[in-house]
Design a protein around this nucleic acid. Structure first.
Lengths: 199, 199
DNA sequence: CTTAATGTGGCACTGAGTGCCGAGATTAGT
DNA sequence: ACTAATCTCGGCACTCAGTGCCACATTAAG
């Protein structure tokens, strides 16, 4: 077996990238709305064939998600780095807040992205499928901490609840009453603590 | 203006009902799977036109939901009937458990229904849209109790979390390790209490 | 019988997503 | 160079969900 050192792989080069395609699509979504932008519109604007679009994104619904899998990796690493002394709840609070820390320059883009994901019905529905992976990251961490299997009720329940808190916070953020996303996320998790502590 | 006392409205009678159509569809889903059953298949099996199917259900995804809106009304009434002395958390626990109390004769049907809703990706995605109403019922109750607006962070966050707990419990139930749905639901809510109480 | 109200379902269309396949592009090896 | 191997591209044709339009059927009431 030959080891490839520097070389690019053989074969025709990709004609575009997910990021570029995403940018083109976002512009169209912003101008005409998600529903009224067809895949053909996006492909045409990007100068590729409709068929090729589906080689970059499995569906139109996946466009707003950017490199979500990469973000999940980041979150996994961050969670692994949390010292064992940190209590579970605090670790989760920090994780949610950190995961959603956005560079100031990308705030507007992120807001638009989340507006699509959480407000367009088709995308709102689709989000459940993408967020499943997020939940599994959280459930895995909780499982590690508590000794439960990741698929057990406790980790799953906590993961679902935490996701819920995060989404609720995002919706407030999008509604515009409060600009500080990090604070909203934190308050949302603390709201659960308040509501569910009187066992 | 004439008051209609007993009479049926004029016009052609409906040729079937949601319930009957649902039954026909369920049989097909069970035999061939949800994805491989087309709307045309259902319509044909029910002896109606494809176009007519969409007068009974807004989408194929809505078939498994039965009379969910009616169920929500029931839940609303139950929550309204909860005495003010009952603490919030306990009221929510009871509400979730009661809402999902199924007559023994319909257990199998309910299981299959939930298997569809929670395991078929398209339906899992769609569930987010249907469960939004459920969340609003819960949020409304929490808002009433706490004096927050229903759209505020606290009620929304609690509603999201409670839904999450319920879904997590259902997944365990479907996985089959534990048959007692009510107990799973209760334990799931208590899991949140345990995880989020260490504020 | 006429009228008004209501349900039915065929037709044609849009748009997402997919399998197939030939054509284009690029690298490594001779 | 030439060739083989390896990718990517994108057209074509197809399936299926969902929708607007519209003619037609059915029924209660005057």
């Amino acid at each position: 077996m030959t080891v490839r050192v520097t070389g690019r792989p053989p074969g025709r080069r990709k004609v575009t990238s997910r990021a570029e395609l995403e940018q083109v699509a976002f512009d169209l979504f912003w101008e005409y709305g998600f529903e009224r932008t067809t895949v053909e519109d996006i492909a045409f604007a990007a100068g590729i064939g409709r068929r090729t679009f589906f080689r970059y994104f499995p569906s139109k619904n996946d466009v707003p998600w950017g490199d979500f899998d990469g973000e999940l990796d980041r979150m996994r690493r961050q969670l692994r780095a949390v010292p064992a002394e940190v209590p579970l709840l605090q670790a989760l609070r920090t994780a949610v807040v950190d995961f959603n820390r956005i560079a100031p320059g990308q705030l507007l883009a992120h807001r638009r992205r989340m507006e699509l994901i959480l407000r367009v019905p088709a995308l709102q529905a689709h989000s459940t499928l993408r967020y499943a992976d997020w939940r599994q990251v959280v459930a895995g961490f909780v499982a590690e901490r508590t000794g439960h299997p990741a698929a057990a009720l406790f980790p799953q329940s906590v993961a679902y609840a935490l996701l819920g808190a995060a989404v609720a916070a995002y919706e407030q953020w999008l509604d515009g009453g409060q600009d500080d996303l990090a604070e909203l996320l934190d308050r949302s998790v603390l709201a659960l603590a308040a509501a569910f502590s009187a066992a």
